[in-house]
């Protein structure tokens, strides 16, 4: 079953949702928002994508492996950033003295916070879409639980 109105609207709207998600994600250290909020917005756009195009003959679908990679990759990125602190013989998750802190209020500032937020965003977006698809496929019977 295809619906032209739905597909066209989705095609127009999804990039903007994702752009907004990226904005919230990148400005996590400057404005309210951040990893979880931005990640959820991007995840929501992916849900919309798979809801609209899933039932089309082309079988668009975010592959399981891709979402898994995002999910695990985001968390691993976070942990590695934290471990950098230990590598520089400071404490876990140290920010000051390792990363350039920049000028407060500018986009590239706050040291590793941007990177960590990005990791969280990846993780959340991956998790949201995985949850949606696995629930759709029947409580995770095919892939096990998440």
């Amino acid at each position: 079953m295809t619906d032209m109105v739905l597909e066209t609207v989705a095609r127009i709207i999804i990039p903007f949702i994702q752009l907004f998600g990226a904005y919230v994600l990148m400005h996590g250290h400057l404005t309210p928002g951040g990893g979880f909020s931005g990640g959820t917005i991007i995840g929501a756009s992916l849900i919309l994508y798979s809801m609209v195009f899933r039932f089309s003959p082309r079988k668009h679908r975010i592959e399981h492996d891709t979402s898994l990679l995002f999910e695990a990759g985001g968390a691993i990125l976070y942990i590695l950033m934290g471990l950098l602190g230990i590598l520089f013989s400071k404490s876990f998750l140290t920010n000051r003295g390792i990363f350039p802190l920049g000028v407060p209020g500018e986009l590239i500032s706050g040291g590793m916070i941007v990177v960590i937020t990005l990791g969280i965003g990846m993780k959340v977006a991956g998790t949201v879409i995985t949850l949606f698809q696995e629930l759709l496929e029947g409580g995770g019977e095919h892939h096990g639980h998440n």
Partner: peptide, 9 residues
């Protein structure tokens, strides 16, 4: 004795 650790310093 007790060890304490401060995350991020």
């Amino acid at each position: 004795g007790t060890l304490t650790y401060y995350l991020g310093g």
